[in-house]
């Protein structure tokens, strides 16, 4: 995109500042006690003043006129003024960055709110951890059934250009303990039966379930020993050495958190259990069944370590 084109769209958006960003919208339902109670439950709010309907929590201001998150008949939310131009310029991803609220009076059950939104500002191009983008600010004004203004919200989003290849998921990021931002790595669903495995990895240990009765090892872990049916168990730390039992190289479809082509191995650990893990520093074309490997630990997110294997000199 040339500089002129770039300025063109930005100038157009700037010229819209101060204008109505969406037609005024009146809440489908008045301020009401069931919604207040449900909100309080979700937020952990226990003030009796709210639970008995004396007043609505001020922080619910945004709730009453909130748009639907799923499209459908009668649910056309519309696009906020200017956002289509920002998106057309390539800043297709979005993350909310600031919300500033001003409460002018307490809301009571029966109040019917109407929201009016104006485009407040668009920033210069900024470089952020997520990518290059523009901050876009909208000003929401809420009035009651008498037309009296009861509150205001300043809502700022960052519209940014997603890094190549992960355009739909660029906003899905995680931060490791060193504070480095990285794509969100899929996390496991964890139960009490397998939590020790993931906790062990955080301590750089590869643990497997060991039966407390017959001493046999099992992976993936479960509550009962399949061999002797004992419910007693402990864990054993593995050496991390093993051989590749089988492997694949994933090309499609691609999900955030990985580099493709992605080799994934099924490793026979020398203790006699098998485990799925990624491979490190082995070219996909070089992976072979029976290749000797050893474990290392890779931090892929905050408090989230997974095992990976690299080639080891046999011996």
């Amino acid at each position: 995109m040339s500089g002129t084109e770039k300025n063109n769209w930005l100038e157009k958006v700037r010229a819209m500042v101060g204008r109505e960003a969406l037609p005024p919208q009146t809440a489908a339902d008045p301020v009401n006690l069931p919604m207040i109670r449900r909100w309080c439950e979700a937020m952990g709010e226990s003030d009796p003043k709210y639970l008995d309907g004396t007043a609505a929590p001020p922080a619910m201001l945004f709730v009453w006129t909130m748009g639907h998150f799923r499209a459908g008949p009668g649910r056309e939310g519309g696009t906020l003024l200017g956002l289509d131009l920002v998106e057309a310029a390539g800043f297709t991803s979005v993350v909310a960055t600031n919300v500033e609220e001003e409460y002018l009076r307490e809301l009571r059950c029966g109040d019917v709110l109407t929201q009016r939104i104006t485009l407040d500002a668009i920033s210069e191009e900024k470089k952020t951890g997520l990518g290059v983008g523009h901050f876009v600010t909208y000003r929401y004004e809420f009035s009651d059934q008498k037309g009296e203004v009861v509150g205001r919200t300043l809502f700022r989003v960052l519209k940014f250009r997603p890094p190549a290849k992960t355009n739909e998921t660029a906003a899905r990021v995680d931060t490791d303990t060193a504070g480095v931002t990285q794509p969100l790595h899929p996390r496991p669903a964890i139960t009490r039966d397998g939590a020790f495995f993931w906790e062990g990895l955080n301590q750089r240990k590869l643990l497997v379930r060991k039966c407390g009765s017959c001493g046999r090892l099992h992976h993936p872990p479960g509550p009962m020993c399949p061999d002797c049916n004992s419910l007693e168990w402990t864990t054993q730390q593995c050496s991390g050495r093993g051989r590749i039992h089988s492997f694949v190289v994933v090309h499609q479809p691609q999900i955030p958190g990985f580099q493709y082509p992605l080799p994934v191995a099924l490793v026979d650990l020398e203790e006699g259990v098998r485990i799925v893990a990624n491979l490190r520093d082995i070219a996909p074309g070089k992976v072979r069944i029976n290749m000797p490997v050893e474990v290392e630990f890779v931090e892929v997110g905050k408090d989230f370590v997974i095992p990976a294997f690299r080639e080891r000199q046999a011996g």
Binding site: P188, V250, V264, V276
Partner: peptide
Amino acid sequence: PSAALATFGWTVPFGL
């Protein structure tokens, strides 16, 4: 934390 979902934890975090 369901047993059915937890089984995916042995493969999905590795890109399978």
